[in-house]
Simulated scan of single mutants.
Amino acid sequence: MLTGLTIVFLGGDARQVEVINKCIELDALVRLVGFDKLENSPSGVRHEALSSVLLQEADIIVMPVIGCDDNGIIAAPFGSGDLVMKQELFMAIREGALVYTGMAKSLLRRMSTEYGFRLIELLDRDDVAIYNSIPTAEGALMMAIQNTDITIHDSTCVVLGIGRTGFTLAKTLQGLGAKIRVGVRREADAARAAVMGWEPFMTRDLTAYTSDIDLIFNTIPTMIITAQIISKLPRRTVIIDLASAPGGTDFRFAEKRGIKALLAPGLPGIVAPKTAGIIIANTLCQSITEEFHLRGDEE
């Protein structure tokens, strides 16, 4: 239970609504900023304006999955406009207060160090990332089906990266009968891919694997699908880049060559916001319980 804890939510998309409902269910005192246009607003919450006083009172602050950008802007699609975290607002957060987000950009990390609040990035956790890879893979499949005129079955698919998302995606494509090649950077990952029945290759050798590709799914957040690679791809190839913006694809050159290349970060919040929200909600509430249990033990 979260009884007695004040949790302030600052903006967020449909995933955040699931987190809010979970915190209400666990008896937290919930305050919402940037949700004044939300239909069917949960009962038992208060809508507030963003202020230093509000943040000072918070035991826990929950930001959206992408937190704030490096200008302090927080997306609030259910509000009257985006929120702006100015320096005096960061200063108001109590030392030791918990601030949750999915992934933090440099401003938020710097403010955490400077003002002593505890920043917790949920997407750093293996359990969240693994569960999140399922709606990501389903969303990538949806985009592939929408943007090709062939079946996934018997298509040749390249998955770049065999991390949590890449592994789930390759396994899902394999289940639909695709021929899978996996670009990896370590020999251990190549062995893992081979055991799964996929054809592994080192990403540095990508140019040798471009001749008959139908679909490329990239999960590596550095420039890997370069102009040199794109120049060797068949024109029918579709690139779906799942890495964080700006992705790992030369989108300008792909457009120039007439190859369809789509940047698709944040798919869980688009294709399955309820499921993605429940994943975040369960993990966040468990984390809060553990954090305050540990503090109670220390006292």
Rank of each mutant, 00 (worst) to 15 (best):
A261N: 09
L83I: 05
R125T: 00
M202S: 00
I20D: 06
D59F: 01
V238Q: 09
L2K: 08
D241G: 10
E25H: 14
P265W: 01
L262E: 12
E25Y: 13
A193E: 07
T237V: 00
R110M: 12
T3H: 05
L107V: 04
A261K: 06
T156C: 03
G44A: 14
P268W: 03
T101H: 04
K232H: 11
C68I: 02
A190W: 05
D189G: 13
A245Q: 10
L141H: 03
T113K: 01
K86C: 03
E290V: 05
G11R: 02
R252Q: 11
N147G: 14
D59S: 06
R295H: 00
I225R: 10
I259S: 08
L262F: 05
F78C: 01
A194P: 06
K256E: 15
V195T: 04
A193M: 10
H153R: 13
N282Y: 02
A188Y: 09
V158L: 14
T275W: 14
G177E: 14
N132K: 01
D241I: 06
A281G: 05
I120W: 02
V182Q: 13
E48Y: 07
G177N: 04
A14C: 00
Q16K: 11
S52Q: 11
P200Q: 06
V53S: 15
Y209W: 09
D241H: 04
R257P: 02
I230Q: 12
L5E: 04
F117L: 06
I280Y: 11
Q228D: 08
P200H: 03
A140D: 02
T203P: 04
E290R: 05
E57R: 13
S244F: 03
G296K: 09
A97E: 08
V238I: 10
T207D: 11
V62A: 09
A137N: 02
A261H: 05
A140N: 07
D127C: 07
F167R: 09
E187F: 13
I60D: 01
I61L: 09
R109S: 05
H47R: 11
G197E: 11
T222E: 14
D250V: 12
K22R: 15
L176I: 03
I280S: 01
E88L: 04
E299I: 12
A243D: 06
K179W: 06
G266R: 02
R185W: 07
P42S: 11
L169T: 14
R185Q: 10
H153A: 10
A191M: 12
I130W: 03
I230Y: 02
E88F: 08
K37S: 07
D250E: 10
G96I: 10
T6A: 08
G44L: 15
D13T: 04
E39N: 12
K260G: 10
D36T: 07
A254I: 11
V158M: 12
L206M: 15
Y100S: 05
A264V: 08
G163V: 07
I225T: 00
A137K: 00
E199V: 10
L242R: 10
V128M: 04
A97I: 07
I216W: 09
A28M: 12
V8W: 04
